[in-house]
Structure formats: structure tokens, C-alpha cells
Design a protein around this nucleic acid. Structure first.
Lengths: 344, 344
DNA sequence: GCGCTCTACTAGCGCGCTCTAGGCGAGTAC
DNA sequence: GTACTCGCCTAGAGCGCGCTAGTAGAGCGC
């Protein structure tokens, strides 16, 4: 009866077995008016019996709309994982399905996006893209796109990011107030938001009259870059230099790596050095004394991104919009008074 | 000309503009024989001009097969991120597309799987599922499914996992050889592989004549559980107890959390305590002195999983198979001689 | 001339669904 | 009676593609 291979049952099978037309089955499954309660129940029962499930591909095709959002993310970024949770929630609320596509070594952003578009996503949400602005502009013209965590001035797409400069300014004010002078920044290379953070760091150093101490160590938003920066600083100390009293990391992952390198080498945080991260990803809460970091509300960002996408789907003519969320410094245990200040 | 909304161009548009039939365009895009080189180039050029891209939904529908694998994973698991990379690679090699669906708070495994199936994935690969064996069996009967990182004896699906007991045995042998007696295991609750690891730990302790020291602290494969276990141990020490000399963590994330808790509290690893992880995820390489861990080759596991899925798609009648990969202890910096042994 | 093969191409059905247009019977109004 | 509505249901076109069957034309042998 049923053993004839794993042939998916179709609407026609349900219709036949329930003694109604295909159209009626369709109505029932779309939960639309036009069928009696009795028939509805019978159809659903039969469908369940023969294991029928609507075929999305056919559905999309027939409907013309897929009500599916594509999300590009990077597998190893914990902050992206935080964002994903928010995206799933908001998308479900708005009646959209979500498809994921990861970037990974050997699988660049364009491949990931192509895959999504090929699966008929109506819009793509890019988490932390580092594509050229021109490419993003082109993408935005071809389809509905939203960039998260990154400003893309002039490009034809919506973006959601936090006011990087404000976040950095808060962090820097915090450190300066604690008496820090030698404040080093490990940056995020061409990662999303890095340019703004770097700029804000420089500005803050100047404003505090610390231009002479200004120093940016190149990094890339991974634990490894934090570890390497840590090693670099420790090596400098060992060859007679002085450690900075505070480090402003490019993000939490980087801060995490740095902390590991430091604690391993016996540098106590925050007694000997303060460390501030950026993101407030899952990691930051986890640490025993907590990472002082600049909070970007992942859920809020995610919700904005989804809403932008959906609103633009409803009205293609919308001008590109930009949501700039207020970041907020969260002081936890990794920042404290500067050693000099404490010593005298 | 082109401004008429964001209407996706179809094959017919390309055909018309190139002055050929739809079928020919189809041939060109499927890279099939039956078109002259000249025509091929013209069609591709035209397609590029008007921004045509094949519509997957229609494609699947017409073809009957989607050649798409669905992967369920958990957003915050770094080991899953490692697996994903391998999956993408192997799937591409075999000509399959990959669709991702994450589990997250508020989005259980069944939801994630339904989403994949709804998008016409031919097979689903479950990374670290903790679903009941009966559910997995049902899933395996309904579609082609592969469970990664978990044994599912008796269920109608393929599985790929490592020989947990061997891995644990190697780790335990290593610790015992180093003179450790008080070896505690933080387990992974009902997480994949946990039961086997727990059992193997117990067996190893017994074999080493250390039943009296046997102790399992409940955990759940997250950093947090490592931190909490760390706090617990430290609290016990502070109220007069003794720290274990070694901890066998449920996975790397847990080991990571534990290390953070320990180093924060001034417990030096491996001088005061040895820590061994499980997975050899990205994290483990990153740490300055490196985490001693049991290596599960993510890429290899991923490749097996993809191949199992594809092979079963080609031959539905295959008996359920199980790939058991040899794990391998990787000794890095977090394990060393037991304190007592070193002291005397 | 015929039949044959080979290459380059096309017509048109069908995948499983949505959705518009409409049918049918019963009720309600006049 | 006609005219209209309303609730429940169906016929059938079409979504964008893949694919089978077939055609047109060139070349070649006899």
C-alpha cells in the first residue's frame, strides 16, 4: 500500500482518499475560508494518515512569493549565533521562514548569497559582511538586502548597526576615568564596524590628550588575534618595554583570546591590565568575573534587520534606511583602576 | 525596460532575448550536450545581462530531485561550526547543495527539521541531536537521515560518531600515567556521546583501581557548565576539601569554561590541576598553551555523514550504517604530572 | 534519387502547488 | 415566479523549470 518506495504523497493523494478536490485540500492547508469544519477535519486526518506534507518548492512556485528570508553568517562567530536567535524569533512572528547559509574557508560570501538567492529567498540578511560597498549596492538593487553590523553609506540597502563611535567613546571615557593612559586598541581589520571603532578610538585618545600613547595593533575579530596581540605585548615587556595599562579589543572573541594569553603569563586582570571587549556576546557573561564590554543588543539588532527586510518587501520603493542602535558600556570585572593610579 | 519592479527574469526572458527556445536555455544552464559553443556563449551573455538566475524551486519541482542536503545544528556549538565546513566541502564535491537550520532557544529540533524537510531537502544531517531514539527512527523511515556525534542503535538511520570509549580510555590512561588519582568527570547530560563517555570514564577509573575516587559532576557541554563545575570545586576546596588533580571535561567548551574559572581563582593549570577536553574544536588550538583534548576529526566526520546521506539516496534499501571514527588524544599544555606525584 | 547518422535545436507535457472564476444548492427578499 | 446572496466546493490555468520525443538540415554512401 504504502511500501512503494519513499514517494512523497501529494495533495492529489489526499484529495482522492478524502473524496474531495485538490483545491479543497489546498484551502484546508492554507487555513483559508471555504471549507466546512467537518471537511477540514477529515482532510487533515487523511493527510496525517498517509503522511502528507506540503511541498514548499511547489508552493513557492505557485505562490510567486516564498516568504523566506535568507541569512548569511559566519559559522564561528558567537555574536552571529546570538543574532540568529533573534532573527528566528522575529521572522516567525512575522510569518516568514528562515534559511541559513554560512561562510567558511573555501566558501566565500558570494557563494553563500548565491545559494540563498537560488533557493528563492525574498530577501537576504548579511551578518557582518566585509564585501565591498559597490557589491552590496549591486546586491541591494537586485534583491532586498540588509547588512547587519556595518554601515554602508550610499548603497541601496538597509543596514542595522550600533553607534560604534558612541560605544567606543563610553569605553574610553570609562578607562580614562580609571586613570589609564597607555590604552592600546586591537582592531578588527576590515571586519564590520572596525573602521568606525578604530576611528573613534583615535578620536578619544586625542580628546583625552593621549595622542602620544595612541597605538593600534592589527587584528581580525578572532580569539587568535587576541592571543597574538597578547603575545606581542608580553614579548615587548620581556624585552624591556612596558605593558599598556588597558586594552580595547576589537570584539569579545579578541578580548577573550587576549585574556587567555595574559592570565597564562601571570598578568592579572584587571589589577595589572584592564581589558574591554565589544559585542556582549554569550561569552562575556560566562566569564567568572565577567568581561567589561560594549553591549550590542543582538536580539534588538536582529529584530530591526528582519523588520527592515519585511517592510521593504511590502514596499519596494522605500528609501534605504539605517538603524543605529545605542550601544551601552557594561562594566564587569575586567576593568579597574590603572596600575600607576592605584600605586600613587 | 528593466525598471518594471523586481520581477525575476525567467528562462523564457533569456530565450526570447537570445532568439532561441526555452529548452535550449535549459540545456545551456544544465551544461548538457546539445548546443553549439557559439549559442552557449550568447545565451550565457544574455542571461548575465538581464540578471537571470535559475529558480531552484521550479528546478526541484521539475526535476523531482532537489540534490539538497539539510543540516540541523546548534548555533553556539563551535564543534558544529567545524563540522559545517567539512559538510559544505564534501557536499559541493558530490554536487549537492546545503541548507542550514539552527536549533536555538524557542526553536527545537523538530521545528528545525520540519523547516528543512519543507524545503525539500532529500536528506537531513543532524549534528548532535538529543532527540529520542524512537523519534530518530521515525525520521529515518520518513526520509534519509544521518546522526552525527551520536550512536542510535536500532534506529533506521545512519550515524557517524567517534569511538567515545576509546577516546576516553586514552585520555584516562594518559592521566593515570601522569600519576593522577582524583580524576573528576564533568559530563554532558543527555548531550550526544555523553552517556558513552561517562560509562568509559567509570570503566577506566575501575580498571585503574580508583573506584573510590570516581566522581561525575553533571554538566551540559557548554562553557557555563564548566564554569559552574569549577566554582563548585573551588567552593569545596575553600571549605576544607581537596581539589581533584585532574578533570576530564565533557567537551572543549566545558573545559574552556573550567579553565577560565580555575585560572581566575589562581589555580594554575597544569601545575595544580590537569584539564582534558573532548572534540578538538577550534578553541583548543587557540589557547596559548593549548588544551589537551581528544581529537574528533570534524572534517572526516562531516565527509562520512555527507557520503552516507548521498549513498543512501542512491540506494534506499541500504541497511543502516554506523561509522565509528578513531579519536585520538592530543596532548597539549593543560595536562601534566599530578601534584602529589611531582611533590614526592 | 534514397536511407542513414549526427548535430543543433524546439514543442509541449508535467512536477505539486496556488488561485481565479465559477457551479450548485439552499436560503431570503420581493 | 425572478433575483440575489452565501456557504461549500471544483475546474483548470499557470508558476519556472526539466526532459522526452521529435524536427530540420547537413553530410555521406550508394
Amino acid at each position: 500500500m504504502d511500501v512503494s518506495g519513499k514517494q512523497r504523497p501529494t495533495m492529489a493523494d489526499v484529495a482522492e482518499k478524502a473524496g474531495v478536490s485538490r483545491a479543497l485540500v489546498s484551502i484546508v492547508f492554507r487555513d483559508q475560508p471555504g471549507a466546512s469544519q467537518e471537511t477540514r477535519e477529515r482532510v487533515l486526518r487523511v493527510a496525517d494518515e498517509i503522511g502528507y506534507r506540503p511541498d514548499n518548492a511547489a508552493r513557492l512556485l505557485a505562490r510567486g512569493r516564498s516568504r523566506t528570508l535568507g541569512v548569511m553568517f559566519t559559522a564561528h562567530h558567537t555574536f552571529h549565533a546570538d543574532l540568529l536567535e533573534g532573527i528566528y524569533g522575529e521572522a516567525e512572528r512575522l510569518g516568514y521562514d528562515v534559511l541559513l547559509s554560512a561562510t567558511a574557508p573555501g566558501r566565500g560570501e558570494s557563494k553563500a548569497v548565491e545559494s540563498l538567492l537560488g533557493h528563492r529567498c525574498e530577501a537576504v540578511i548579511l551578518l557582518g559582511t566585509d564585501a565591498a560597498a559597490a557589491d552590496l549596492d549591486a546586491l541591494g538593487r537586485r534583491t532586498v538586502a540588509v547588512a547587519v553590523g556595518r554601515r554602508v553609506p550610499g548603497a541601496r540597502l538597509d543596514s542595522v548597526h550600533s553607534a560604534e563611535s558612541k560605544g567606543i567613546r563610553q569605553a574610553m571615557d570609562h578607562l580614562v576615568e580609571l586613570g589609564h593612559h597607555r590604552i592600546v586598541h586591537i582592531d578588527g581589520g576590515r571586519g564590520p564596524g572596525s573602521a568606525e571603532r578604530r576611528r573613534a578610538y583615535r578620536a578619544a585618545m586625542r580628546r583625552a590628550g593621549l595622542e602620544s600613547e595612541l597605538r593600534v595593533i592589527p587584528g581580525d575579530h578572532t580569539e587568535l588575534s587576541g592571543i597574538e596581540a597578547g603575545r606581542l605585548l608580553l614579548a615587548e615587556r620581556d624585552s624591556g618595554g612596558r605593558l599598556p595599562t588597558a586594552v580595547l579589543a576589537g570584539n569579545d572573541r579578541c578580548a577573550m583570546g587576549l585574556l587567555l594569553a595574559l592570565t597564562r603569563a601571570g598578568v592579572e586582570v584587571p589589577r595589572d591590565m584592564s581589558v574591554v571587549g565589544y559585542d556582549d556576546s554569550h561569552l562575556s557573561h560566562l566569564m567568572p568575573i565577567g568581561l567589561t564590554t560594549v553591549r550590542q543588543d543582538a536580539v534588538l539588532m536582529a529584530e530591526h534587520a528582519v523588520r527592515f527586510a519585511v517592510e521593504r518587501l511590502d514596499d519596494e520603493e522605500l528609501e534605504p534606511r539605517e538603524a543605529v542602535l545605542e550601544p551601552k558600556l557594561v562594566v564587569r570585572g575586567t576593568s579597574g583602576p590603572a596600575p600607576e593610579a592605584a600605586a600613587g
